[in-house]
């Protein structure tokens, strides 16, 4: 063999490996991407809910993208409680005003941010929600106060279509 550091054959090897890697990637990607949400799953992206029958102090749960969404009509005490919390005391600081467009209505994903269980309504140390799986406590604004969950319960994209109808998604 010659003493030269690189020669024509080395170049050919490198070029072959590079083209081979691109080809292998092109074959592997469809195999991976087929597991992502398909067109029919994505098509079920929004839902409309009639909330005219919900009285103050009651929560309804609707299914959106396979997940529960809590729609709670909060009592004045609950709203006051949610607003009175000092922002520094929160693990995930968020103002109640930023979580509820209309303070009377709290619309949020009923999914514990720890490992995805559905928290129980009107339970726990903060009069909000309590997740039975691993003991996370949420307040009346759905904010994490105690337990292993890292963040507040998520607020989905939603808007009031009219006074009695909420469109989620």
């Amino acid at each position: 063999m010659s003493e030269k550091k690189t020669n024509r054959r080395d170049f050919l090897f490198t070029a072959t490996y590079a083209v081979g890697a691109v080809g292998a990637g092109a074959v592997v990607w469809p195999m991976i991407d087929q597991m992502n949400p398909d067109a029919s799953v994505k098509a079920l992206a929004s839902t409309e809910v009639d909330v005219s029958t919900v009285n103050p102090g009651k929560t309804i749960t609707v299914l959106w993208r396979g997940k529960p969404v809590f729609i709670r009509r909060r009592t004045p005490e609950e709203i006051a409680e949610a607003k009175s919390v000092k922002i520094e005391d929160l693990k995930h600081p968020e103002k109640d005003e930023d979580r509820a467009q209309n303070p009377e209505w709290l619309v949020m994903l009923g999914v514990c941010t720890h490992l995805g269980c559905v928290p129980l309504d009107q339970k726990g140390d903060y009069n909000g929600w309590f997740c039975p799986c691993h003991g996370s406590h949420y307040d009346t604004s759905g904010r994490i106060r105690k337990g292993p969950a890292p963040t507040n319960m998520e607020i989905p994209e939603y808007k009031f279509v009219d006074a009695n109808t909420i469109k989620i998604g």
């Binding site: 991976i32 597991m35 992502n36 949400p37 398909d38 799953v41 993208r65 396979g66 997940k67 995805g116």
Partner: peptide, 23 residues
Amino acid sequence: SAIPLVGEGIVTWLWGGYSVDNP
């Protein structure tokens, strides 16, 4: 989902949707 940045994407990929379901 505990994995930083890509966690949520991985979970959606594992599920084939936005929650555990038929896929």
